[in-house]
Amino acid sequence: MPTKPNNDAPVIQIRDVSKVYEMGDGTIQVRALDGVSINIHDGEYVAIIGASGSGKSTLMNIIGCLDVPTSGTYHIDGQAVETMSNNRLADIRSRKVGFVFQTHNLLPRLTALANVELPMMYGHWPNRRKRAEDALNLVNLGDRMDHRPTELSGGQQQRVGIARALVKEPSVLLADEPTGNLDTANTAEILNIISDLNHENGITVIVVTHERDVAARADRIITLSDGQVISDETKPSPLMTKGELEGV
């Protein structure tokens, strides 16, 4: 059950999505996703977990509009993605999806501020500098804006990555193993930031991980195995969401 009781259309609406990769000369087919259906609503904090090879990376790529399904439909913010051209996909990525990568993927020669400005450059955003500064302040890096990635710790780099992802106010923050390369202290810090963004700023978060304790921070855990959803559990929320508050 979605955590939001209102009737808004889901931000992410995946219907019977399959993804088949053809290997070699096309004789071998690998079914990475097999009839997956998921709805994710505004403001949710969802973890997608599964072992390596379960199809979670494929699912993340499709949710992030880096790839399109072989069959089935996928709507993000009501827009059908599966038929989009490369350019439209790039457009959706620039406006609706904020990526946080395992290996932060910052451009090494740009300052933290310039890295955060990068996605806005492709989306023709105004006031880029101001927005980037705000985003960096939000992840408590206001004093590190002019540092290059190599001058920052792993946790700080990942915080720049998060700032870069949320600076364009995406429909969904998509984090792929965001703590995979971090030690325990930094992991806790990053997970706290993500939680705060979800709880306090109402940002929809999807975390893809294979670590149970990372997934445990989410309100809803979707488990994938062999390309299929084998469980979809929602924890009772300790806080009321925005929707619930409005309902009171």
């Binding site: 880096l66 490369n86 457009d91 990525r93 620039s94 990526f99 993927n105 990068l118 492709y122």
Partner: peptide
């Protein structure tokens, strides 16, 4: 790849 993920068009 990073630029593409950030929304860079072809």
């Amino acid at each position: 790849g990073i630029r593409q993920a950030m929304g860079a068009k072809r």
